[in-house]
């Protein structure tokens, strides 16, 4: 090995010249009633993510494998799957971290499986608009050339929650959602808070009925797995806890104060 190679060598990197076995959950509803496992040996390269392994299988080994992906750079939120039991974005989960293997790839937990690694996300898609995750403005339309100015501090209030990419890893990680499918869930509540805490938004009261319901924040028991699973560091558990305090304060006000003073 030359001196230059030595300098660029990454210490403690597992051997990247061999292969790794990927055990992939298969489910073909037209042919079988229960999911099964297929094993594939794929090249183990240090720059290969689990998604690259799946693409290798699809292109070279078995074209019948179905899974969702798009951007390969952790922003589209399509490629969430269960890797060795944990919900992960497969495009940013590297095969070398699981060497010598095998790596088990399953569909996201807590969602019905359509085929192989593709899950039905209809439940989340139906819940998301109920929290109105958009800027709700008052009756007064702004003048044509006006701007909604915001200070950096005002932006910091919601910025973290705006990083959500709707990948649904948090739903897959949430034990409450597993037990109670009516729970609105971590991402939807974090996205509601993204707008509630935005200085330009006036939709707090519109979102309250859904957020402060038994299926809203009150279903959460603060297990915190959503924030562990989140690949974008959104901290949905923190968003939910913050809204619990908001909702509880409002509930006390509703009880104690006359309607006009709330």
């Amino acid at each position: 090995m030359s001196e230059t190679d030595d300098k660029h060598a990454v210490p403690d990197m597992p051997d990247t010249t061999g292969t790794i076995t990927m055990e992939v959950a298969r489910f073909r509803p037209d042919r079988e009633s229960e999911p099964s496992w297929d094993s594939y040996d794929v090249p183990l390269r240090k720059e290969w993510a689990v998604l690259d392994g799946l693409n290798h299988i699809k292109d070279q080994l078995d074209g019948t494998l179905s899974y969702r992906w798009s951007c390969r750079m952790g922003i589209c939120g399509s490629c969430g799957m269960t890797v060795n039991g944990e919900p992960k974005l497969t495009c940013s989960t590297f095969l070398t971290d699981y060497a010598p293997g095998p790596v088990r790839v399953e569909p996201l937990a807590n969602f019905p499986v359509i085929r192989d690694l593709v899950v039905d996300i209809e439940d989340f898609m139906a819940k998301l608009p109920t929290v109105k995750p958009w800027l709700v403005s008052g009756d007064e339309e702004p003048a044509e050339d006006s701007e909604y100015r915001q200070t950096p501090a005002e932006m910091d209030d919601y910025r973290r929650y705006s990083m959500c990419i709707n990948c649904m890893l948090c739903y897959s990680a949430c034990p409450v959602y597993a037990l109670d499918p009516d729970f609105i869930g971590p991402a939807a509540i974090a996205l509601a808070q993204r707008y509630n805490l935005d200085s330009r938004d006036e939709g707090n009261e519109d979102r309250r009925d859904v957020l402060a319901s038994a299926e809203g924040v009150w279903a959460c028991t603060f297990v915190g797995e959503c924030s562990v699973a989140c690949p974008k560091d959104v901290d949905p558990a923190g968003a939910i806890q913050r809204y619990k305090l908001t909702a509880a304060t409002q509930a006390v006000k509703d009880l104690l104060l006359p309607r006009g003073a709330r």
Binding site: K127, T130, D182, I184, D209, V210, A212, S213, A214, E215, W218, K244, A247, A248, Q250, A251, V252
Partner: peptide
């Protein structure tokens, strides 16, 4: 999806305090 107000906030306030 029901949007009934829940008595939970009061239980939660006692819990957290």
């Amino acid at each position: 999806m029901t949007t009934k107000r829940s008595p939970e906030p009061f239980a939660w306030l006692l819990f957290s305090s």
